[in-house]
Design a binder for these strands. Sequence first.
DNA 1: ATAAATAGATAGTATTGCTATCTTTACTAC
DNA 2: GTAGTAAAGATAGCAATACTATCTATTTAT
Lengths: 226, 226
Amino acid sequence: MNYRVSIRMNEHLFLRDPENSELGRRIVRQGITLFDELGFEDTTFRKLANGINTKEASIYRYFENKHRLLVYLVAWYWQWLDYQLVFQTNNLTDPREKLERVLRVLLLKDRSQPADGDMDIQTLHGIVIREASKAYLTRHVTDDNRQQLFKPYKDLCGRIAGMILEYRPDYRYARSRASSLIETAHYQAFFMQHLPSLTDFGGQQTDDELLAFLRHLLFSSLDGDC
Amino acid sequence: MNYRVSIRMNEHLFLRDPENSELGRRIVRQGITLFDELGFEDTTFRKLANGINTKEASIYRYFENKHRLLVYLVAWYWQWLDYQLVFQTNNLTDPREKLERVLRVLLLKDRSQPADGDMDIQTLHGIVIREASKAYLTRHVTDDNRQQLFKPYKDLCGRIAGMILEYRPDYRYARSRASSLIETAHYQAFFMQHLPSLTDFGGQQTDDELLAFLRHLLFSSLDGDC
DNA sequence: ATAAATAGATAGTATTGCTATCTTTACTAC
DNA sequence: GTAGTAAAGATAGCAATACTATCTATTTAT
């Protein structure tokens, strides 16, 4: 059996769909490489172009600017993650088990379903941890939001919120709980790696400790009287 | 009685101490104004200089670059907040009451102790919400950390972690709990304002709802069996 | 009164973040 | 096979950014 999941992206995320051409795919692939290696701030379209033997101007035909490329990659990741969630929780009936899967998927603990080959999921995960909040922590967040740029993130939160409500139908903070779960997973992962004194994860299986922490946080909030 | 709290900043945060001169204080004050109005990305030292009738070059004598100015402002805020915490919890004996105060201080719910007059705390709070994570979400976080730039943040987390342990001495995740409390407070405040569908705070007293959510999250994690 | 520190003024440079235009190539329809 | 169109390549250019350097004027400390 050979299959792959393809992810349909919102049109506002690009000027020309990068999945439809060889150049577009190279831009995306190199974008991931540079964001990973240089970080968002030090990446430029000129460097990106040089890395794939094309010209700056060609990249501007695909993405308005560097920020939009970031938004694109992050949105792609959220959509991919959302699909993983659907896949991994399919056929499960126990709501607690579903939430357990949510935690594992957020931390990329399981061999995932293959996606379009241009996306290196592990690397993208690292980019999301360090750069994703720069996608919305801007003065133009409202305009960007109007163009639906954050819909994948909202959809993912919505799905998790739904699972929270399956587990605990009267829970009052499903959406905030979902968004803070995602955010906490990512910045704790960042702290763990770079500012470990902000965390309690020092040892070897830091990833498992983080999972245990998130599990504890999530279920203590859902299981209490409230 | 007339007093003010003065905050001693780490030397690595600046090239020349901005508190020691009129120009320095103007730079800081205008920095706050511009970060607030234009956001970090669209602020430049040229604009800043024009706004206070000086030259770009003069600003570079105080701060290495724009990022360092952000780090300085954010560090100042964390130190100020840390002091607020000390002040507000002084003489309290009930550990739960102390943690309640932590929540209120994080959300700036109480009339605070006056600080050096150049800092507009409310505005700074807004900047911290939107920009603070850009201070550490970089590729050079490790170098910056070596220069102690994030010590104020760590100290604040450490203090909150200490209070958590007073309340619950056997709690295993005091530091992660503290850092995620701070981050959650800020992210949720941002979402509430700009991407409200990621939260459950829609109505009028959104700030009180956020407080209730944070209280719920914090105490449910500390009161459970674990 | 003199030296030292600070600030102001001016200039200059490499890079960034674009936009414009023109040419070449590749595919598509008739 | 040719004409037409879309994508990509090539080149140029420009205003703004992020600095650095240097010189002069002013304040301040001794």
